[in-house]
Amino acid sequence: MNTRLPHWLAQHVAAVRVVLVLTVLTGLVYPLAMTAAAQVPGLSSKAEGSRITGPDGSPAGSSLIGQSFTDADGNPLKQYFQSRPSNAGTGYDAGASGAGNQGPESVVDTLPTGDDPTTGKASLLTRVCSRSKAVADLEGVDGARPFCTDDGVGATLGVFHDGGTSGTVTRVVSLNQACPSLPFLTTYKGVAVECAKPGEDYSRAVTVPVRGDAPGHSKVPADAVTASAGGLDPHISPAYADLQVPRIARERGAGADVIRKLVAEHTTGRALGVFGEPAVNVVELNLALDRAHPSNDSKKQGA
C-alpha cells in the first residue's frame, strides 16, 4: 500500500529541494566557476581591479582610475604629469563619481558675499578660464582663450537697456569681476563698464559674453580645463601631455626627447582604429617616470 504525502506537504518538500539546488548552484558552483575564470591569464589583472604597483612594489592604485598629483594644498607637483580636472568628490574619489552638471549657458558667477568664499559659485565659463590661466602659468605658455578675461574669469557683461531687453544701453556691469577689480573692458557701446557688487541683483540685465581677441584654439588643450563625465578618467590627450614635457624634463633632469618617448609608450590609439581618440594614461606614465627618472621630490612623495 503506497502512502502519499498530503498535497500541501509535497509542495513544501518540492520548494525546499528547489532552494537547496539553487543555493548550491548560485552560492557555490557559480562563484567558484567565476573565480576560476578570473585566474585565466589575461583576465586576472582585470578581475582584481587592474591594480598597478609603484617602484617599490607596493600598490599604487588602478590603471582605470585617475589620481590627483598635487600637494596637501592642492598645488600641482611639478615633477609629475598633471591629470585633467575631476568633479568626483575632492578629486578622483571613486566613491563619489560624478560630473559638475554645468552646461554651456553657465557663464555668470555667483559672487561670494562677505569673507566666506563658500557663499559663491563659479560658472562653468569661469572654471574653464581659471583653469586655463593656472595651466598656462605652470607650463609657461599663453593660456588665452575666447570669452575669458586676463585674470581668469568669464568675460561676461550684464547690459541694462532703457527698454528692458532692447533700446539704449544705460548701464554695463562686468558680472564676474567683483569690486574693486578693474573690468576687462573700459566701455561698452559708449557706456563705462562697472565692476560687480556681490549681493546686488543684476537679473534685469541682458547677459552678453564677450569673445575678445584670443585665438580660436588655445595652447592649453580642452581636456586640461574640463573634467570627464564620471570624474575618474585617468587619461589625458597627447596634446596636453606634450605641453607638459618641457617642465617634466626640467624637473627630472632628463632630455625632452627621452620624456616624449616615455609618453609615446603609454599612449593608446583609437579602439579598432576608428573609435575614440588617442589617450595617455597619466597614472601609469607617472609611475614609469619614477622608475626611469626618479627625482628627490618623487622619492619623498612615494608616488
Rank of each mutant, 00 (worst) to 15 (best):
T3K: 11
L5W: 15
A10C: 03
V13T: 10
V13D: 04
V16Y: 11
L20W: 05
L20Q: 04
V21G: 04
T23N: 07
L25Y: 11
L32W: 15
M34W: 14
A36T: 13
Q39Y: 13
P41Q: 06
S44W: 11
G49F: 03
P55V: 13
L64F: 14
L64R: 14
I65D: 03
A72R: 11
D73W: 09
G74P: 04
Q82A: 09
A99S: 15
G100L: 06
P104Q: 11
P104A: 14
E105F: 13
T110K: 15
P117Q: 07
G120L: 06
A122Y: 05
L138T: 10
F147K: 10
A155L: 04
D162C: 08
G163W: 10
R171I: 06
A178F: 10
T186K: 12
A192M: 10
C195P: 06
A196N: 05
Y202I: 08
Y202Q: 12
T207G: 02
V208T: 13
V208Q: 14
A214M: 01
P215G: 04
H217N: 14
I236Y: 01
P238H: 12
A241P: 02
L243G: 00
Q244A: 01
L262W: 00
L262C: 00
A264H: 09
E265P: 03
E265Q: 11
T267R: 05
A271W: 08
V274H: 12
F275T: 08
E277R: 11
A279W: 02
V280I: 05
E284N: 09
A288K: 09
D290I: 03
D290E: 14
G302M: 08
